[in-house]
């Protein structure tokens, strides 16, 4: 059993991805070690497979780096349990880097 998740990058994160992709559909097993797949596994998948060459610009300490917001189906992941949120098939996960310019 596998699930697919739509991932999207915003606020400049798209620039550190391979081919500067803004969107991708990733396929993950529905469970890992007998437990449901969480958004942490999506983050690690993106770090290992989609980030071009500087993984630390996306992820540190097995989660997103400081300054990145994660939105699950357009809601702040804080409301959903952050890293431990169990991803569902067809979920949309949006990664937003905070910007400082103006």
């Amino acid at each position: 059993m596998s699930i697919t998740v739509d991932v999207e990058f915003s606020g400049g994160l798209e620039l550190i991805m391979k081919d500067k992709v803004r969107q991708a559909t990733v396929s993950l097993p529905a469970t890992a070690d007998g437990k449901p797949t969480t958004v942490r596994q999506v983050i690690l998948y993106v770090r290992d497979n989609l980030v071009a060459d500087k993984p630390q610009l996306f992820s540190t300490e097995n989660t997103v780096r400081p300054g990145v917001l994660v939105m699950i189906n357009d809601s702040d992941w804080e409301v959903e349990g952050e890293n431990d949120y169990q991803v569902q098939d067809k979920d949309k996960v949006l990664f937003i880097s905070t910007m400082h310019g103006g």
């Binding site: 400049g12 630390q56 780096r65 400081p66 300054g67 917001l69 880097s97 400082h100 310019g101």
Partner: peptide, 20 residues
């Protein structure tokens, strides 16, 4: 509340470096 930890310095960008 949203950004308790500042981002790493190498991820900071501004208009004079990245354009706008």
């Amino acid at each position: 509340c949203l950004f308790p930890t500042p981002p790493p310095v190498e991820t900071l960008s501004n208009c004079s470096e990245t354009g706008v």
